[in-house]
Design a protein around this nucleic acid. Structure first.
Lengths: 329, 329
DNA sequence: CTGAAAGCGCTAACAC
DNA sequence: GTGTTAGCGCTTTCAG
């Protein structure tokens, strides 16, 4: 199919290309009959405006870049889903970029994003902090960070206060007199675990205690499970907190092999779960983190920034809900 | 930061924009010293070529559209991951589009893709078949379909032969004299289940039998689990095949509630599993479907089509591997 | 080896 | 209301 341009339509309809532009954008007033004529021509020729050319002329692309870590999508899936739904409403396209463990690549990705001249960038990344973002901020297009509390001139963020969540959870156990509480720590999700530790420490401090139970998965272990199997042969806690349901499940399975029964001998809680949690036995007590909303709100904020609309607050905190299940008493 | 264009660089380096274009594209021969001068200017000004303008001039965007159903990403995640990794190698950008259940939207999405002038489209979709694709084929850019066997002039496909997989699986059970075999059927993944049924039917026919055990989840049930719980109070099979581990898990949990033990009283197999399968008890026997490769190969084929490279075969079948686990004897 | 100039398809003043 | 025209930033002949 030959490319049909705005000129072809103009010819067909016997008007100037400016008029065609007017009707496709519906901005200015065009006389009824000529509008109809133009629309017929468009229909007849099967004309579709070239978004690339529009982008050049308008200096905007109506597409925003999404930057997510690696590509498991196990937990970002919901976020992306929310993002896309809202993006669709506002007619924004999403270009998907993933950051691998290798930090070196990040420069390349950002370069790529800049070349693409997207209107904005949404980032979900535990590791990427202000410093790494600076490369992006120089080009001062709006940035929305999902998952971290963070803001500046053209950066907004949408997040859940995990520290507070953890504080409340740990406090409630401490109140019951249970102090043997441990957190699973692994290399990934470093930022997230840090927040959990802060929250726990805070709760301990309040009781005049010190929190120091980190179950750190050593680098040499390919999977947490392998390590945990060893670990629970020698250790036991009253409560173990994992960040994800998969980690929690590894804990439960490992503990079970070591003869520990959850929740009888040990309770387990995770922060974020997936749809699989409902299928697991025991089902894991978790915080209901509004992942979908995290994405949807992020995209909404982005559209506001793009429209220069005033934003009440650049750091938007979404709420969580602790949901006890079978893995706790 | 002010936009810096190729003109600015040309000025700074005291050359024409044509020369700058040459050095950034590294195509034609440019004298050593002027090349260095230009590169210095680029460095100094922080110039990044505008991909939009390049796209306009070159009539190509180096970006390809990815169309996936809804947005669960539970099973497409791996595919997307493979896709992105290869896309990165070839410097292609991916724009992400999701198709919801509502068919009406599909036209809008396709229109959007066409306007974006992507270089190609990769589609993973059980439902979308030739007819729906026609809107795309008219614009004759390359299309790669993931998951369906399908091809034509500018359409290639990468898939796994589920029918064959199912045929082999069912045959092996029939050979053992087990004929009470059922397939879980739901509204989603219709195409996939169809293939499974074909494979099973074929195996049954070969034995002079007829396959007719479909456990169809009625529309009114929000989750399969709710229905299955009722179902297994009254029914029981020797083998139940589900397409996904989540479905299989629902079967196992429901059966378990009805007093059936898997695999003792009933065996369960699923076709595609996720990383969660390794955490489930029992772990579900499944076919190892090379999801990542499905994506990676699809992208590779796409790049070939874009380069007009000859393609040996437009229908690429990837292999699976049946992996018995705890849910079968 | 390098520069001038004509597009690529569209938008947005500015005329009429 | 509608047409004219100058860009948007880059690539690519075609000269020199």
């Amino acid at each position: 199919m030959k490319r049909v341009t705005i000129y072809d339509v103009a010819n067909e309809a016997n008007v100037s290309l400016a008029t065609v532009s007017r009707v496709i954008n519906g901005l200015e007033i065009v006389r009824e009959d000529t509008r109809i004529r133009v629309n017929q021509a468009i229909e007849k020729l099967g004309y579709k405006p070239n978004a690339i050319a529009q982008g050049l002329a308008l200096q905007k692309t109506t597409s925003i870049a999404l930057l997510v870590p690696e590509a498991s999508f196990n937990y970002t899936g919901q976020i992306i889903s929310g993002l896309l739904d809202v993006a669709k409403i506002y007619k924004y396209n999403i270009t998907l970029h993933t950051t691998s463990e290798a930090i070196i690549q990040i420069g390349e990705i950002i370069e790529n994003i800049i070349k693409s001249r997207v209107d904005g960038v949404i980032i979900y990344n535990d590791k990427l902090m202000m410093d790494e973002l600076s490369a992006l901020t120089k080009y001062n297009f709006p940035i929305v960070v999902v998952g971290n509390q963070l803001s500046s001139d053209n950066i907004a963020s949408v997040y859940v206060n995990l520290q507070k969540a953890m504080f409340e959870l740990v406090s409630s156990y401490l109140d019951k007199g249970m102090t043997d509480i441990a957190i699973i720590q692994d290399r990934k999700n470093k930022y997230m675990v840090e927040q959990l530790i802060k929250g726990a420490s805070q709760a301990f401090e309040r009781k005049g205690l010190v929190f120091e139970n980190f179950i750190e998965i050593p680098r040499e272990y390919r999977s947490s499970y392998t390590y945990l199997r060893e670990y629970f042969k020698k250790h036991k806690h009253q409560l173990v907190v994992a960040h994800r349901d998969s980690q929690a499940m590894a804990v439960i399975n490992a503990a079970s092999e070591a003869g520990l029964s959850v929740p009888k001998d040990m309770e387990v809680v995770c922060i974020i779960d997936s749809k699989y949690n409902s299928m697991m036995r025991p089902q894991i007590s978790s915080f209901a983190i509004p992942s979908y909303d995290l994405g949807a709100v992020a995209m909404r904020v982005m559209t506001k920034m793009l429209n220069q609309s005033p934003i009440e607050d650049k750091e938007i905190e979404l709420s969580y809900l602790y949901t006890p299940r079978q893995s706790t008493k």
